[in-house]
Structures are given as C-alpha cells and as structure tokens.
Design a protein around this nucleic acid. Structure first.
Lengths: 223, 223
DNA sequence: CATAGACACGGTACTCAGTATCATGGGCCA
DNA sequence: TGGCCCATGATACTGAGTACCGTGTCTATG
C-alpha cells in the first residue's frame, strides 16, 4: 500500500481521523483500517489509542535523561538549559505535527490529561537530577522540587505561546528570557564564586537608621 | 444494610477492595456488590471507577476558587497562602483516608495520572488568578505561570513528605517554610511598601572598591 | 534443496468500563 | 385512590485492551 513503515502510517491515520471525525468518534478499527493493517497490529505498535498521538515522548524523555546524566552539579544550569532547549526544539522542528496535536489535545479531555501526565514525567526527571546535585544541602528536596517545577513551567509557557501563535516565530529568544527568570531565582545552585561578578550585599531592618546600616556594611567590606 | 449514604458506602467499598485485591483486579461490579447496590447505581454516583477514590476534588477546587476570587492583587500573597493551607488541611483532616489513597495512587499508574491531572487543575486556577492580578505588567503571563507552578510544587513537596512519614506530624510549619521560599522569590507581586519591614539593598560589581560601594549606598539612603 | 525456527501479521474470543434506555417500586401530594 | 416523581435495578450495547492461536514469510543451517 505504502512504503512508509507501519508505525508511521498508523500515527498519521490516527491524527487524520481524529481531526476529521473527532477523537471519541474514531475507533481503533478505523485507524487500523485506514493504515491498511489489522486491529491486532495497531496494538502491537501502540499500547493504547492515545499513544498514537504521543509517539515520541519516550525517546525524548530518554534524550533528556541522557543530557542530564552527562552533567554534574557544577554544570547544572547549563545542563538544564540545554535539556529544555532540546525539548522545545523537538516541537519546533516538527511544527506542523505539533500544531495539529496542540489543537487536538486542547479539546479532548482524555488527551489533555495524558499530556499533563507526560509533562509530569519530565518534571520528575528534572527533580531527581537537581535533587541529586543539591545533595544534602538544606532544603535540597524542596529546592529541587521548585526548580523542576519552574523550569517545566517556563518551558510550557513559552511553548504554549508559540503554539497559540501558530508557530509563526522562533521561540528561542522567549525561552532564554524565561529561563533567565528561573535561573536568577536559583543562582545558589552554583558555587557563589562562579555566579558571575555580582555579589548580593544584604537586607536590613526598615527601621534601622541609615547610620546603623552604613556601619554594618562598612564592617563587612573591610578597610 | 447500612445507614451510611450510598455515595459514602461506595467510596469505602472501592478503597477497601482496591487495598485488598488490587485496582485492576477489582471490577465496578465488585464495588457495587460490596456496597449493596447495583452497577447502575455506582455510575450514578461516580462518573468512573477512578472517581470513587477522588470524591472531593471538585468541591475542594471550588473552595480554592472562592478563596482566590475573594481577593485582589493587594492581598495576593495572603490569599495564595490561605488557599494552599486549605488544600493541605483538607488532607491532614482526613489523614486516614489520605494515607490509604496515597499508598494506592503511588502504585497504580492510572490513578497516578489522574492525580496529576487534578493537581494541574489547581495550578491552572492559581495561574489564572495570579495572571489577572498581575494585569498587563511585563512578563505577567510568565510570572503567573512560574508563581502557580512554584506554589503547587511547594504544597506537593510538603504533602508528599507528610504522607511518606505516615502523617505523623503537623505539616503547617514545613508548609509555611516552603511557602516562605516561594514568596521570597515573588515579592514583586505585592507593592514594595507592603512587603514587610525588610528592604533589599542592592548588588554591586565585585571589582568595585569599598569606597565606591559606600558612596552609592549613601546616595540612596539619603541624609 | 529441505526443514526448522523466528517473526510479523491476522483472526477470534474474551473481560470490563462506560453509556443509553427502559422497567419497577416506593413515597408523596391532591 | 389515583397519579406523579424519583431513586434504583435490569438489560443491552459499544469499544478499548488482552490473550491466544493460526498462518505465511524469511532466513539460517543441515
């Protein structure tokens, strides 16, 4: 029938039928028939009907895992930035597919839940690595959780904006901007001496007199 | 059979059977039979098999919505803190049920995904309100997304810790600690003059001389 | 060349979640 | 008493997902 591998034909049949007739109205039999194979074969390639729209989450997850695994605490921020860029690039490279899927996922609750569950797996991955990098520093668990959540949220915000705009621009800039926001909040991940040439001074009681503030600062700055 | 309302009997039958025989091994028929009603009646009270374990998410979500709706941008942080406290308290008040459900959700993928989807609804709620409060300030969408994600992540981290420990302590302290972390990062949500009695001073170039630093500070502190 | 095994696919039959629809029976009001 | 409402039960159906078996093809090895 076609020279395309079956797996690809099934995915294409699925998304086309979902688009044309709706998700609930499309049966696995329909998909298999359109791809020219049997129902059995469909389930041999995809575990479930939903799977046919998310064919590449597993491999992408594996790539992220590999990228993070290749890093250490010292290069945490670079690794995280890279990883998020990989994910976003994956969507951007296949803009056509991403946009069709986005429209679908937006209006089918079952698919939306599935998407959210996938995102949670990415977040879990980030959390585990950041947690390991933070070791047993104070609040390591909490900070890892917040870091992972923020990174994923930043990515999602940029991606959603790009999808809503129909994929009409390069989201690299917005992503870097968003990640900058996140990273600024979590500078303490890296060693202080590596955190650029800026140093935060202090906070003081609002009721303190200017003289008292000056004295305290002068004392810490040395001669 | 029992004086308990049917809805409650069904939920109890469900969680008991899931505990004893496993989730997949328990059919809706089993649950209905144990509650002494028919299969039809089960689906009249719960939309799905999973629903029987998450009976109160909708009402809790409505309470959070109400709490946030009752606030404005001025009192954002208090509202958010309150809302998160409400959610955590809901779990703590029913520690027995929460713990059983936690053990179940942890090992049944379908339930875990469902739980994650529920959490996403809370996050969406926070995002919408914070976004509205931020109005059209720069990066409002991004900051709302990050704020919501962080708040939810902080809550989940505290809740998970409490659940893992078997619900053996009062998690209010840890929650406040975690929220403090989050709020510190998002101080700019509130007006500066309302942000407590602490004031952040500044950052300076590491190469600046102590004298230059002092001069700059003195200039901002006034006479 | 023949045979055996691996493998991919098709076919069949089953379980069970979820939906739709109708029947029933008990309380309640006129 | 009669009629109505409403909660429950009963039945039948669709479709996802699983298990299992049969069959054809391709390949390696005698």
């Amino acid at each position: 029938m076609s020279t395309q591998p079956i797996r690809h034909r099934l995915a294409e049949a699925a998304v086309t039928l979902f688009d044309d007739n709706g998700y609930d109205e499309t049966t696995v039999d329909d998909i298999a028939a359109r791809a020219g194979v049997s129902r059995s074969t469909f389930f041999r390639y995809y575990r479930s009907k939903e799977d046919a729209i998310f064919p590449d989450h597993d491999t992408l997850l594996a790539r992220i895992d590999a990228r993070l695994r290749a890093s250490t605490a010292d290069t945490a921020i670079v690794a995280i930035t890279d990883a998020v860029r990989i994910v976003l690039a994956h969507y951007v490279d296949d803009a056509e597919v991403s946009l069709r899927r986005y429209r679908l996922v937006r209006e089918v609750p079952a698919l939306r839940d599935r998407e959210i569950a996938s995102v949670a797996r990415y977040q879990r991955l980030f959390r585990e690595f950041v947690g390991a990098w933070l070791g047993d520093s104070p609040d390591a668990g909490l900070r890892a959780e917040l870091m992972a959540a923020s990174v994923v949220a930043a990515h999602n915000q940029v991606l959603r904006g790009w999808l809503r705009a129909g994929g009409t621009y390069d989201p690299s800039g917005p992503l870097d901007h968003a990640l900058g926001y996140v990273i600024a909040t979590f500078r303490h991940l890296e060693q202080p001496q590596e955190s650029g040439d800026q140093v935060v001074v202090a906070t003081f009681s609002r009721t303190a007199s200017p003289q008292a503030v000056m004295a305290a600062i002068q004392q810490h700055l040395g001669p």
